[in-house]
Design a protein around this nucleic acid. Structure first.
Lengths: 194, 194
DNA sequence: TTCGCCATGTAATAGGTTACATGATTGC
DNA sequence: GCAATCATGTAACCTATTACATGGCGAA
């Protein structure tokens, strides 16, 4: 690609980039899991935070390269077989992660829900369509709630990291909130919403 | 579905583009508000859906141009003064909006919360830092809850569109859920989380 | 009349999304 | 031995984000 120093070393060839959520995800996962491939990252994401914050696998392949260019990760290739790329956190990377974790900045939660956007424009369609929307969404979130609970139980069996469990817990609680909300919406429609 | 109406331009210069959430936001707002400037859109977003789904103003300036290129919007410029650009929905645009509203597709809700991402990696920092994180977030969401309630009351006074109110309602409920969650997290830390 | 904020945009870039593509495994 | 799925990437496009920049208007 471009000729970087053999091992990020003395040249300070560390291009400073601004770290995105994806960056911290990768840093944190590698910090917790040790040297891993992008596919390992993908799997780790899938049944945890990825439940409600999607990180496409293509990014989990692309982001490590960026972080490595910045000196926060190191790459090692398998000698034989597939010669897969294994990523691990450097001291600089660990430092970046720790300082990020240390500042407890609270930021606005983004909730992006297409169904909710449709509801927002409910006045521009017929009430029965809104009711259908509400019913479909209620069912959808009920199903998701059930999935979460199964997942939760499954993970509880194998002693999962408590922080990871807590994270899923909020996801679950959100789903329950959504179920209640959409069910009310569905009931609200038919009887004339004054 | 498409082979749009003739008047959209004999040239057929209607490049088909895939419509993003931003597209539907703009279409829906213009549908509800009538001809408006991008600044009008910005204001309409700010105290409503924009509370939990951020749409930077630069997009509210850029997106209408895209939609107009696709034949879904029409542009009119003021004759004098600032010569601002006023956007309005064409028949094709209205049709696109309606068919979108008609299909009640349920999709996964994205919840993007930096604090939650930090919590996810709680095992890589000290318990007291996690507790601080929880406290800061609890306070943050308490404050946001209060803001929502004030906003809600304020808008209830002026008879706001019930669907718009409902949308805000879910935002509010999410905030309450978050408050409870972070408060529990804050209390959970000190006493040893086995 | 000057300062400051509201209003109205544009530019640049990087990050994200959606495909595409192909090598390895595993099951049948 | 073949099909299906898992694993591992790359490419292209484009949206979104972050700055920058300026004009108008209101208040003091």
């Amino acid at each position: 690609m471009f000729d970087h120093p053999s091992h990020v070393g003395k040249s300070g060839a560390v291009r400073s980039l601004n770290l995105t959520p994806t960056s911290y995800l990768v840093l944190g996962l590698l910090g917790a899991m040790g040297p891993s491939t992008s596919y390992d990252l993908k799997r780790a994401v899938s049944r945890s935070i990825g439940e409600f914050w999607s990180f496409p696998h293509s990014q989990l392949y692309a982001e490590p390269a960026r972080l490595a260019a910045a000196g926060l990760l190191e790459e090692r290739r398998e000698e034989r077989g597939r010669r897969r790329r294994l990523w691990s956190v450097t001291d600089a990377g660990r430092e970046a992660l720790e300082s990020w974790l240390a500042e407890p900045s609270a930021a606005v939660t983004e909730i992006r829900d297409l169904g909710l956007l449709k509801l927002f424009f409910g006045g521009q369609t017929t009430p029965d369509r809104v009711t259908t929307l509400a019913e479909v969404n209620a069912e959808f979130h009920r199903r998701r709630t059930a999935d979460y609970e199964a997942l939760h139980a499954h993970l509880a069996a194998r002693g999962i990291d408590p922080y990871e469990r807590a994270t899923l817990e909020l996801g679950l609680r959100y789903e329950r909130t959504a179920v209640a909300f959409w069910e009310e919406m569905a009931a609200w429609g038919p009887e004339g919403q004054g």
